[in-house]
């Protein structure tokens, strides 16, 4: 079998060592024809567009303020005026239960315990979830590229120190690091010299999620750079006396960049889940801001009476992360089949 595949491989265009449109264009051609990839991309774009349209939805469709308590509001459903917070008919009959899904423009998915429109909050929450995950991905990949490439390329004491630090972080359970950082920072905010970041700022979860996964990307990057450094074309370039920075720029970076690109959707999916988990534990996005995780937390007390509140954001997370993972898989197959995410 090997020989048959070899025969195919013989004429497959080799990934070139020099920057060129080769591997990128080839990947594009493969991706363009893959239906699962196209579907995933469409779903992802649709989710982004609808979260971007959140203010429009809140203003023109639902007409409610998704950030303020609305306990006494009344709305029109099927021509009747009903209370958003209805006298509870379940359980002991005490207290109030928020209105369930109306499947109309107002309170499409019902209300949460504060009487806020879940559908509108879902869109606003998605904005935060996606924004945090995307920014954290950028931070994570930049830091990881810096650490991984310098450790791999410069070797020596740089590598020793960085690898030691990565070792500790690697053994440090990610959840513990994330939660420790979140609790300390979100309870008090952070002051570094003149810069003061409030405890409810989105920058905190972005920063926290951005750094915790650095070792997970930096390690494979370092390994790739190390193996590239030993590869024939880099050895040849060094033999020719080409300066190190040129080798880094022309031979190492283009080869590592495909790997980094593949990490983008995969890390973003992971970050969405991480952000939602922190928010679920109430140490992520802070009220009155919403994210998918905080809405699931809001819905926890309503789980058996108004399950939609917790179900809807969860489905949004699954759809988004699933489409990102499909994109990541196809990108990897097309661009860089060697990349493995732990």
């Amino acid at each position: 079998m090997t020989d048959i595949t070899e025969a195919i491989r013989v004429h497959a265009p080799a990934v070139s060592s020099r920057p060129s449109s080769g591997p990128w264009r080839r990947a594009w051609h493969i991706l363009k024809r893959d239906r699962a990839t196209l579907l995933a991309a469409a779903v992802f774009v649709l989710i982004i567009l609808s979260t971007l349209a959140a203010p429009l939805y809140a203003r023109y469709v639902s007409g409610t303020d998704p950030f303020r308590s609305n306990l006494s509001a009344r709305i029109m459903v099927d021509g009747k005026r009903v209370k958003v917070m209805q006298a509870s008919t379940e359980g002991l009959g005490l207290g109030v239960t928020p209105i369930g899904p109306t499947w109309g423009p107002q309170y499409l998915l019902g209300a949460d315990t504060q009487g806020r429109d879940v559908a509108a909050r879902l869109l606003y929450g998605g904005r935060n979830s996606l924004l945090i995950a995307a920014s954290a991905t950028v931070i994570c990949l930049c830091l990881a590229a810096l650490v991984g490439i310098s450790a791999g390329f410069f070797g020596g004491w740089v590598d020793k120190i960085l690898s030691r630090i990565l070792d500790i972080l690697w053994a440090f359970p990610v959840y513990l690091l994330a939660i420790s950082l979140s609790i300390v920072l979100i309870s008090q905010g952070i002051v570094i010299g003149p810069i003061e970041i409030g405890s409810d700022s989105l920058l905190l979860p972005i920063f926290i999620i951005g750094i915790i996964y650095v070792p997970y990307v930096a390690r494979p990057l370092r390994g790739r750079v190390l193996s590239l450094k030993q590869s024939e074309f880099v050895l040849a370039a060094r033999g020719l006396g080409i300066p190190a920075w040129r080798i880094l720029l022309h031979d190492i970076l283009p080869n590592v960049s495909t790997m980094l690109i593949v990490f983008v959707p995969l890390m973003m999916g992971l970050n969405i889940i991480t952000e939602s988990s922190l928010s679920f534990l109430s140490i992520g996005v802070q009220a009155p801001d919403a994210s998918w995780g905080t809405i699931i937390q809001d819905g926890q007390t309503l789980l058996y009476t108004r399950p939609v509140v917790a179900l809807a954001p969860g489905i949004a997370i699954v759809l988004t992360v699933l489409s990102l993972n499909v994109l990541g898989d196809s990108l990897r197959d097309a661009l860089d089949p060697r990349t493995k995410l732990v």
Binding site: M1, D3, I4, E6, A7, V10
Partner: peptide, 17 residues
């Protein structure tokens, strides 16, 4: 290499995919 020698043998042994 690539002339089909190995493919010939593997397929007559039934070891092809």
């Amino acid at each position: 290499s690539g002339s089909g020698k190995s493919v010939t043998l593997l397929s007559l042994l039934g070891l092809h995919d």
